[in-house]
Simulated assay, not measured.
Amino acid sequence: MQQSIGSGFAVAFTPDECRVSDMRKITAAYLKLWRVPESTAENVILAVSELVTNGIRHGHGDVGLKAVCADGGLRIEVTDGNPNPAQLAQAEDDDLSGRGLFLVAVLAHNWGVSDDGHTTWCVFRLSSGRN
Protein backbone atom coordinates (compact mmCIF):
# COMPACT_ATOMS: atom_id res chain seq x y z
CA MET A 1 0.00 0.00 0.00
CA GLN A 2 1.41 3.40 -1.02
CA GLN A 3 0.35 6.61 0.66
CA SER A 4 1.35 10.21 -0.06
CA ILE A 5 2.29 12.30 3.00
CA GLY A 6 2.93 15.95 2.11
CA SER A 7 6.36 16.01 0.48
CA GLY A 8 6.90 12.35 1.10
CA PHE A 9 5.59 8.86 0.79
CA ALA A 10 5.19 5.72 2.86
CA VAL A 11 4.97 2.15 1.59
CA ALA A 12 4.41 -1.06 3.56
CA PHE A 13 5.11 -4.44 2.00
CA THR A 14 5.68 -8.10 2.74
CA PRO A 15 9.34 -9.08 3.10
CA ASP A 16 10.19 -10.48 -0.33
CA GLU A 17 13.51 -9.78 -2.09
CA CYS A 18 11.68 -8.88 -5.32
CA ARG A 19 10.27 -5.84 -3.50
CA VAL A 20 13.71 -4.17 -3.41
CA SER A 21 13.40 -3.28 -7.09
CA ASP A 22 9.87 -1.95 -6.54
CA MET A 23 11.06 0.31 -3.72
CA ARG A 24 13.91 1.65 -5.88
CA LYS A 25 11.41 2.48 -8.65
CA ILE A 26 8.97 4.22 -6.30
CA THR A 27 11.79 6.21 -4.72
CA ALA A 28 13.23 7.18 -8.12
CA ALA A 29 9.83 8.47 -9.26
CA TYR A 30 9.49 10.70 -6.20
CA LEU A 31 13.08 11.93 -6.46
CA LYS A 32 12.34 12.99 -10.04
CA LEU A 33 9.12 14.71 -8.92
CA TRP A 34 11.06 16.56 -6.21
CA ARG A 35 13.78 17.49 -8.75
CA VAL A 36 16.56 15.92 -6.71
CA PRO A 37 19.84 16.19 -8.67
CA GLU A 38 20.75 12.95 -10.47
CA SER A 39 24.00 12.38 -8.53
CA THR A 40 22.19 12.70 -5.20
CA ALA A 41 19.27 10.61 -6.46
CA GLU A 42 21.63 7.76 -7.37
CA ASN A 43 23.04 7.77 -3.83
CA VAL A 44 19.55 7.87 -2.28
CA ILE A 45 18.39 4.94 -4.42
CA LEU A 46 21.45 2.92 -3.42
CA ALA A 47 20.77 3.67 0.26
CA VAL A 48 17.11 2.66 -0.15
CA SER A 49 18.22 -0.58 -1.79
CA GLU A 50 20.61 -1.39 1.06
CA LEU A 51 18.21 -0.47 3.89
CA VAL A 52 15.25 -2.28 2.32
CA THR A 53 17.39 -5.38 1.69
CA ASN A 54 18.48 -5.35 5.35
CA GLY A 55 14.85 -4.94 6.46
CA ILE A 56 13.78 -7.91 4.35
CA ARG A 57 16.65 -10.17 5.42
CA HIS A 58 16.76 -9.32 9.12
CA GLY A 59 13.29 -7.98 9.88
CA HIS A 60 10.32 -9.49 11.65
CA GLY A 61 7.12 -9.19 9.59
CA ASP A 62 6.18 -6.48 7.12
CA VAL A 63 8.70 -3.85 6.08
CA GLY A 64 7.98 -0.13 5.72
CA LEU A 65 9.75 2.48 3.62
CA LYS A 66 9.15 6.16 4.28
CA ALA A 67 10.73 9.19 2.60
CA VAL A 68 10.20 12.82 3.59
CA CYS A 69 11.60 15.73 1.64
CA ALA A 70 11.67 18.94 3.70
CA ASP A 71 13.90 21.74 4.96
CA GLY A 72 16.72 21.12 2.47
CA GLY A 73 16.98 17.45 3.34
CA LEU A 74 15.63 14.06 2.46
CA ARG A 75 15.03 11.52 5.24
CA ILE A 76 14.69 7.84 4.40
CA GLU A 77 13.36 5.40 7.02
CA VAL A 78 13.01 1.63 6.82
CA THR A 79 11.06 -0.09 9.57
CA ASP A 80 11.37 -3.85 9.90
CA GLY A 81 10.00 -4.87 13.29
CA ASN A 82 13.33 -6.21 14.53
CA PRO A 83 14.17 -4.81 17.98
CA ASN A 84 17.88 -5.56 17.45
CA PRO A 85 19.31 -2.35 16.00
CA ALA A 86 21.18 -2.41 12.71
CA GLN A 87 24.94 -2.10 13.19
CA LEU A 88 27.88 -1.42 10.93
CA ALA A 89 29.65 -4.67 10.09
CA GLN A 90 33.32 -5.17 9.36
CA ALA A 91 33.20 -7.14 6.12
CA GLU A 92 36.28 -9.00 4.95
CA ASP A 93 37.54 -8.61 1.37
CA ASP A 94 36.03 -11.94 0.26
CA ASP A 95 32.67 -11.53 2.07
CA LEU A 96 29.68 -11.44 -0.28
CA SER A 97 27.63 -9.20 2.00
CA GLY A 98 27.94 -7.00 5.08
CA ARG A 99 28.74 -3.64 3.47
CA GLY A 100 25.24 -2.16 3.19
CA LEU A 101 25.27 0.09 6.23
CA PHE A 102 28.85 1.11 5.49
CA LEU A 103 27.67 2.34 2.07
CA VAL A 104 24.76 4.20 3.66
CA ALA A 105 27.11 5.80 6.21
CA VAL A 106 29.45 6.96 3.43
CA LEU A 107 26.75 8.25 1.06
CA ALA A 108 24.35 9.93 3.51
CA HIS A 109 24.90 13.05 5.58
CA ASN A 110 23.82 11.13 8.68
CA TRP A 111 22.27 7.81 9.62
CA GLY A 112 21.05 6.02 12.72
CA VAL A 113 18.61 3.66 14.34
CA SER A 114 15.49 4.48 16.35
CA ASP A 115 15.58 3.96 20.11
CA ASP A 116 13.41 0.83 19.80
CA GLY A 117 15.71 -0.61 17.09
CA HIS A 118 12.86 -1.11 14.61
CA THR A 119 13.73 1.73 12.21
CA THR A 120 16.98 2.48 10.41
CA TRP A 121 17.15 5.95 8.87
CA CYS A 122 19.45 8.17 6.84
CA VAL A 123 19.42 11.81 5.81
CA PHE A 124 20.69 13.36 2.60
CA ARG A 125 21.28 17.08 2.19
CA LEU A 126 19.68 18.63 -0.87
CA SER A 127 21.03 21.65 -2.70
CA SER A 128 19.23 24.92 -2.14
CA GLY A 129 18.58 25.18 -5.88
CA ARG A 130 15.95 22.43 -5.72
CA ASN A 131 12.34 23.65 -6.17
Rank of each mutant, 00 (worst) to 15 (best):
F124A: 01
G55N: 03
D71I: 09
G117E: 13
M23H: 00
V48T: 08
D62A: 06
S128L: 11
G64K: 11
D95K: 10
V44G: 06
T120W: 07
G59W: 12
P15Y: 02
H118V: 04
E17T: 14
W34R: 01
Y30V: 00
A10H: 08
C69K: 04
S4R: 04
V113K: 08
R35D: 06
L107Q: 07
S21D: 01
S7C: 03
E17A: 12
A10M: 11
C122W: 04
R24D: 10
W34D: 07
G64T: 05
L51W: 06
R35Y: 02
L65Q: 06
H109C: 00
V113N: 03
T79N: 08
D71A: 14
G129T: 08
A12N: 03
I56W: 00
A89M: 14
V11Q: 12
K25S: 15
S7L: 03
F102W: 06
L107D: 10
G64L: 08
G55F: 08
S128T: 13
E50I: 07
G100Q: 03
V20F: 12
K66D: 04
Q3S: 09
A89P: 01
F102L: 15
P83S: 11
Q2L: 05
R125A: 06
A28N: 07
G100T: 14
G8K: 07
K32D: 03
V52A: 08
V20N: 08
R19P: 00
R125I: 03
V20A: 13
L51G: 01
V52E: 07
F13I: 05
D22E: 10
G8Q: 01
D93K: 07
P15T: 05
G73D: 11
W111E: 08
K32S: 11
P37D: 00
L31P: 05
H60Y: 10
T79K: 06
G59A: 08
K32F: 05
G61I: 13
D80V: 04
E50P: 09
S7H: 03
G6E: 01
I76C: 06
Q87T: 14
S97D: 15
L107S: 07
Q87G: 11
